[in-house]
Structures are given as C-alpha cells and as structure tokens.
C-alpha cells in the first residue's frame, strides 16, 4: 500500500520555491505535506498534494522538472515514544528509512508520517505484523482535509 508523492527539482537560486508554490496554487492544488532535501547546489522538494495528476500537469506545463513516486504513509500514535517504537520495527527488520516527514496536522491524535524505505515490502510486513495502520491515498487526503 502506498501513496503518491510529487518530487520537484529546485535549482539553488532565489525565487524557485515561490514559483512552484504559485503554479500549484493557480492550479487549485492543496499541499498536505512537504519536505525539502537540500544540497549545496540544488534541492528536491517533496510534496503530498490533494491531486497529484493535476499538480504534475501544471508543473510540466511550466517546464518544471518533477516526478511521481510511491511512498508509505504510516499512522503513528501521539504518545511519547510512538515514533521510536515504529522506527525500531524497521531497524529490527533491516529496513533503512531513506527520508521521512510529517503530514501537517497540529491537533491530531493520530499523526501521519511519510516514509521512503529502501525495502518498502519488508517495511510494510513489519508494520502489518505490529498492527500499525498504513494509510491509503484517500485516507491521507481526508486526514489532510480534517486538519
């Protein structure tokens, strides 16, 4: 089970992030979660949006380099130690987290984290065995709208 993530190449110069945000805004796309990976010379903006196809089309139309990939959205408890508990599952099954970020939802009792794993299948198995809920696209979307 996975959700769609949009990755966007950003050159390291002023105004690039604004351009992307405007293109998405003009297309009527809502951003549910984001993270930026940056190096000295370039960055990669990763987004979970309410309409991936529409966002992809709008960005392509502006000549902005983007790509869709699969990530896993995992529901994590809000009690202290919940994140550590989930991460430990991955460690035990030999799965590496390549990157992760949270879906913005300040008041939720079930925060959702987005993960990119080196072995998604093994990660899902570990989560299922521990009885941890993995969200679908629709769930992520409704989650975001509730917030």
């Amino acid at each position: 089970m996975s959700v769609k993530q949009l990755s966007i190449f950003l050159e390291n110069r002023p105004g690039r992030l604004v351009t992307v945000a405007k293109v998405l805004g003009d297309a009527g796309v809502s951003i549910l979660a984001l993270s930026v990976a940056d190096t000295k010379d370039f960055g990669i903006l990763r987004l979970i949006v309410d309409d991936v196809a529409k966002a992809d089309e709008a960005l392509h139309g502006q000549g902005i380099l983007c790509q869709i990939s699969d990530v896993t959205a995992v529901e994590i408890g809000s009690a202290p130690g919940s994140l550590a508990f989930v991460l430990e599952l991955f460690t035990k099954s030999g799965v590496n987290v390549e990157y992760m970020y949270a879906i913005a939802e300040p008041c939720s009792t079930h925060p959702v984290m987005v993960f990119r794993f080196d072995q998604p299948k093994a990660a899902l198995e570990a989560l299922a065995a521990a009885g941890i809920h993995v969200c679908t696209d629709a769930e992520v979307l409704s989650h975001g709208q509730r917030a």
Binding site: Q5, S7, F9, A37, T39, F42, I44, R46, L65, Q67, S69, V71, E98, R116
Partner: peptide
Amino acid sequence: PEAFSDQVRGLE
C-alpha cells in the same frame, strides 16, 4: 527527467 528522482543520491 531520466536522471531525476525523489532521491538526492541519484543526482549526486
């Protein structure tokens, strides 16, 4: 587009 992915590593 062929070289680009969600991972920093690929471009590095």
